[in-house]
Design a protein around this nucleic acid. Sequence first.
DNA 1: TTGCATTTCAAACGTGTGTATGAAACTATC
DNA 2: GATAGTTTCATACACACGTTTGAAATGCAA
Lengths: 222, 222
Amino acid sequence: MSTDSTRTAILRAAERLYAERGFGDVTLRDIVAAAEVNLAAVNYHFGSKDELITELFVTRSIATNRERLNELKAAEAAGGGRAPVEDVLRALVGPTVRGCLGPDSQRSDAARFMIRASIEAIPPIRKIKNREIDHLRKFAAALRRALPGKADEEIFWGLHFALAMAHQTVRDSERLLRLSDGVCDLDDVDGVIDRVVNLAALALTATKPAAADKAPARRGGR
Amino acid sequence: MSTDSTRTAILRAAERLYAERGFGDVTLRDIVAAAEVNLAAVNYHFGSKDELITELFVTRSIATNRERLNELKAAEAAGGGRAPVEDVLRALVGPTVRGCLGPDSQRSDAARFMIRASIEAIPPIRKIKNREIDHLRKFAAALRRALPGKADEEIFWGLHFALAMAHQTVRDSERLLRLSDGVCDLDDVDGVIDRVVNLAALALTATKPAAADKAPARRGGR
DNA sequence: TTGCATTTCAAACGTGTGTATGAAACTATC
DNA sequence: GATAGTTTCATACACACGTTTGAAATGCAA
């Protein structure tokens, strides 16, 4: 093999197992069994378990960020340097949702691995995760361009809620599925993305006093 | 002590440590050290580590659900059997948010423990967690009463998004804090709850075609 | 006090984990 | 085909974990 097949076999097996079962439940022995390689190969090729996880996370993190930024740039280029709020949000949450929901064939271990990483926040990952902030700032900036005059506070909350809804939907899709008894269609990936994007956009574009049809926003319950 | 002080010392120490550091990073030896009791006391009083966690989770789960239902019933009683959407949602997300955010003195290990439990989904917890669905159905029913004629699908999505936003906000408040450089005030607990509740209510009450001021909801990105 | 049940304690056990070792197998260059 | 460098392999190590054990300490009724 011209490519180091043992190395990549370990990476693929680890990514798949971690995506399926989480970090806590997967041992090196599980990984090497799935990859059909020797136990010592992990330490030979990666140095340690933590370095294996770190390499996986860094690689996927870069890929995800690039994918998001590509969509953002495409959207902004189409709009002459400014994209509608919806498109900015879609670029932010689309890649992850698309990789985690939908038919099995379309789901990616990579996206589900990243969700696991964001959930369990294992030490080797926690250190790197700080860079995500800088990445998100680029989307905050794009939202500012889309909403001139909007207060920063609102921008950040909108961004946060968009991520929260997308993230939680892919993370615990089972609960929504069971709660709704199948009424909520999580295989309609674009539909899910639209729900998240539209609601977050609503948060960002709605006029301040929130003119809902009834029950004006009241503060300080109980 | 009339109350079994060793037992409760273990429970308190375990709850605090699990809340602070998660299940993966806390060993029985950590717990008994914090509780200042002997290692064997855990197995003597609880049988096993899993049973200790189960007892913690069951106790807190019941308490949380009761707190939520109390608020819901109070709200519905005040409205003659029907509460406004906002109040239903507030009863759902309020207890958790209030227990996890705000000044240290007001934060509770119990609420943060429950968040950890919902994040890490350890085997002993996973089995019990199914009951949460039944609990949430009561809130879905209350939302149906508040929004007669609304499609069930929308009810469930609204409920889901409300939980998603609240949950993610308390779970990763640090990220929002750093992203916004302190602009978003997470110590204003009622303010946070209002944001979540109002946005979720907007999702539930907004007319279907989502008449935002610009960029009509479009389907099928990329 | 005596006797018995409950609780605490130090110490050890068995198991599963990540990691290290040193020899064997393989690959490529001369 | 011999040699040096790389990769694989079976095996073992060291350690931390949850759990068990049996004796000591404590509480409490008669």
